[in-house]
Design a protein around this nucleic acid. Structure first.
Length: 576
RNA sequence: CGGGAUGUGGCUCAGUCUGGCGGAGCGCAGCGUUCGGGACGCUGAGGCCGGAGGUUCAAAUCCUCUCAUCCCGACCA
């Protein structure tokens, strides 16, 4: 492609509405433009990269035995009613009516459609296993789209669905997808980690997330170098190292703590450590009031709470509810003296029995010497906190590490959740009717583009891994007005294309500085620079975008020298 | 949905507090000088100051409503 004719609008400045680096750079490099909140136009450059990503995904899906199909974006309400998700899914499901007043929705995911398809066709175990996938635009009306392509409302996703006759088959399908995902992300040149995950609203029995490691990731993962354990912190058990309290247990005592609303304020006022406190967090679980007790230096894990209570919806209580249940202003909630119908759940870690400080359910007051066993009517004990630095590995007890990640893939073993809801059955070897065992597997194709830039950039712009780069190579002609040089550039352009490379030739009548800046910004892995001075000396400059290393290649034996250099650039990426 | 902020040529922003001819830089068009890391000079085009209503002799500026976008908290590829 000739840059003089290409639609690649680069920008010197980042748009005001972009916050994260991938968003800024993808817009500046002319890869994407925002149409409206959470909805993006993929420009030629960005679209090429997305297709590169999709191609790798496709190859690995096909290799794993999955077959590609394409399902509709518009889906009828009846199917969603049948699965129960029309009511359950929430506002992310964009619902609308057509001209006949028929209710429809834009597909946020395709379990309903695929299950409907398969239940109509597949009656026998002999037809299984089957794995079907598509690469397609999804729409989820996110409450708050953000971070550019990272959390859009409209995005491109690869979703695959497996159907098996029994559990062992489903496990094999799961494993096969898991392995395919590892190959996909490895081939794309991403640094990633597969972690155990919560299965969320999609449902099902177990799942793994594939996380691209980046500081700007929305998720935190915990991993153990000793035993290989890796999980999303939402999911990781927090093991309490409990040392039972053997000291005194003085009686409960109320103390005045004017104006201390936060743990930090209480600690400062009473000269205590956060771990000496009990935090009383109030929630509604499917409408019912719930109090959760954790140590002052811990965070309540909402997912664990939700799973433990087996609740459909758990939300932090509104301020009015808090004041109503505690009879006190915000910041003074405690487990003693709560309104009667508030169930109290305590985190395992508090089982050490140590007397602690808690809110008094009274303005400007706390209580000291709170002994949960003695003073509080606990409904149940459970692991309800987020694992934190300093906690042992839940699997082997060694010290785990923590990292931030961007979720780019998620594999679920669904079991029979959808096959039961939609009555998708087969006959087994004995002629018995059985529900099909399902799995589903997603890859955020457009999110990978953003995650890739988050992980691969420098001060000058994007540093695309070869597998994702929109072109293999960029050829800069520094003086387009020099006819001899332009002819040489054309010759090299043809030669490189004949080598099977995708080449972007900067043949614009621009000053060299502009060309260098744009080339670095766009981030194509290999740059060849043809300038007058070098040309006179019979050389051109080759620059590795990843590390900035420049060498000169002789024009005389260009093909050979180029191949050797190209090998080096590519192996540099392979060895990361 | 709560909390915070912002809407002014294509882009980044000043001007708003204290009402009085709509500005700058970049980009764009033309001419000239430049030409290996986002050059310089001159000339020029380009605006319903997000929209509606109000106050006023006079509104980008003050008031009311509304729409949009971004950031912080509950969802997810």
């Amino acid at each position: 492609m000739r840059l003089s004719k290409a639609y690649i609008p680069t920008l010197k400045e980042a748009p005001a509405d972009a916050e994260v680096i991938s968003h800024k750079l993808l817009v500046r490099a002319g890869c994407v433009r925002k149409l409206t909140s959470g909805v993006y136009i993929y420009l030629p450059l960005g679209w090429r990269s997305l297709n590169k990503i999709a191609a790798v995904v496709r190859e690995e899906m096909n290799r794993a035995g999955a077959q590609e199909l394409h399902m509709p974006v518009v889906q009828p309400a009846e199917l969603w009613r049948e699965s129960g998700r029309w009511e359950q899914y929430g506002k992310e499901l964009l619902r609308f009516k057509d001209r006949h007043d028929r209710e429809s929705c834009l597909g946020p995911t395709h379990e309903e459609v695929i299950t409907d398809l398969v239940r109509g066709e597949v009656r026998s175990y002999r037809r299984l296993p089957i794995n079907l996938y598509q690469i397609q635009t999804k729409f989820r009306d996110e409450i708050r789209p953000r971070f550019g392509l990272m959390r859009g409302r409209e995005f491109i996703m690869k979703d695959a669905y497996s159907f098996d006759k029994d559990d062992a088959g489903a496990d094999a399908s799961y494993k096969s997808m898991y392995d395919a995902y590892e190959r996909v992300f490895t081939r794309l040149g991403l640094r990633f980690k597969a972690v155990e995950a919560d299965s969320g609203s999609i449902g099902g029995s177990f799942s793994h997330e594939f996380m691209v490691l980046a500081e700007t990731g929305e998720d935190t993962i915990v991993y153990c170098p000793a035993c290989g354990f890796a999980a999303n912190v939402e999911r990781a058990p927090a093991i309490a190292a409990i040392t039972p309290w053997s000291g005194e247990r003085p009686p409960l005592k109320e103390v005045s703590t004017p104006g201390t609303h936060t743990v930090a304020q209480v600690c400062a006022f009473l000269k205590a450590e956060p771990s000496d406190l009990i935090k009383t967090m109030l929630f509604t679980a499917d409408g019912a009031p719930v109090a959760v007790l954790v140590r002052g230096d811990r965070e309540v894990n909402l997912i664990k709470l939700k799973n433990f209570l087996d609740a459909a919806e758990v939300e932090q209580a509104a301020p009015e509810q808090v004041t109503q249940w505690t009879g006190a202003p915000l910041g003074f909630a405690g487990p003693v003296g709560l309104r009667g119908d508030v169930r109290i759940y305590a985190d395992e870690e508090l089982k050490d029995g140590r007397p602690r400080i808690a809110g008094a359910n009274k303005g400007d007051a706390h209580v000291r010497n709170l002994d949960i066993a003695r003073d509080v009517k606990v409904t149940a004990w459970a692991d309800l906190r987020v694992i934190a630095e300093g906690d042992p590995c839940p699997q082997c007890g060694q010290k785990p590490g923590f990292a931030r990640g961007i979720e780019v893939g998620h594999v679920f073993k669904l079991g029979t959740k959808y096959s039961k809801a939609l009555n998708a059955t087969i006959q087994d070897e004995e002629g018995r009717e059985r529900h099909i065992i399902m799995g589903c597997y997603g890859i955020g194709v457009s999110r990978i583009l953003a995650a890739c830039v988050e992980q691969n950039h420098d001060v000058d712009g994007i540093v695309f891994p070869p597998a994702i780069a929109p072109y293999d190579l960029m050829l800069l002609n520094l003086d387009e007005k020099n006819a001899e040089l332009a002819a040489k550039a054309d010759e090299l352009y043809e030669l490189l294309r004949n080598e099977g490379l995708e080449v972007l030739l900067d043949d614009r009548e621009e000053r060299p500085g502009v060309k260098f800046k744009d080339a670095d910004l766009i981030g194509i892995p290999m740059q060849l620079v043809l300038g007058t001075k070098g040309f006179q000396r019979g050389v051109l400059e080759a620059k590795d975008r990843r590390n900035g290393e420049k060498i000169e290649l002789p024009l005389a034996d260009f093909a050979g020298a180029f191949r050797a250099w190209r090998e080096r650039v590519l192996s540099g990426w392979g060895m990361r």
